Amino acid sequence: MSLITCIIAIIITSLALRNTNFKIKYKLYWAGLIAFLLAVLFELISLIIFPVKFLDEISSRDQTTWSFGWAYIVGWIGAVAEFAAGLFLLLDKGAEEIIYRERVLHDENGIEASDDV
Rank of each mutant, 00 (worst) to 15 (best):
L3K: 14
I4F: 06
I4E: 15
T5D: 11
T5C: 13
C6E: 15
A9P: 02
I11R: 12
I12P: 00
I12Q: 02
S14I: 00
S14Y: 00
L15W: 00
L15G: 02
L17V: 01
L17S: 03
R18G: 05
N21T: 01
F22E: 07
K23L: 07
Y26S: 06
Y26Q: 13
L28D: 01
I34D: 03
A35E: 01
A35V: 00
F36A: 01
A39G: 15
A39E: 02
A39N: 04
V40G: 04
L44K: 05
L44A: 07
I45R: 07
L47F: 04
I48E: 05
I48N: 04
I49V: 09
F50W: 12
F50Y: 13
V52E: 03
F54I: 01
D56L: 15
S60G: 02
R61H: 09
R61T: 09
Q63A: 06
T64A: 10
F68E: 07
G69H: 03
W70F: 05
A71C: 01
A71K: 11
A71Q: 10
I73W: 08
G78S: 11
V80S: 14
V80Q: 05
F83S: 14
F83K: 04
A84Y: 12
A85Y: 04
L87H: 07
L87W: 13
L90R: 08
L91V: 10
L91A: 15
L91C: 08
L91M: 13
D92M: 12
K93H: 11
K93M: 13
G94F: 15
G94H: 14
A95I: 11
E96M: 08
Y100K: 15
Y100V: 14
R101E: 15
R101N: 14
E102F: 07
L105N: 06
H106I: 10
H106M: 14
D107M: 09
I111K: 12
A113E: 10
S114Q: 07
D116L: 11
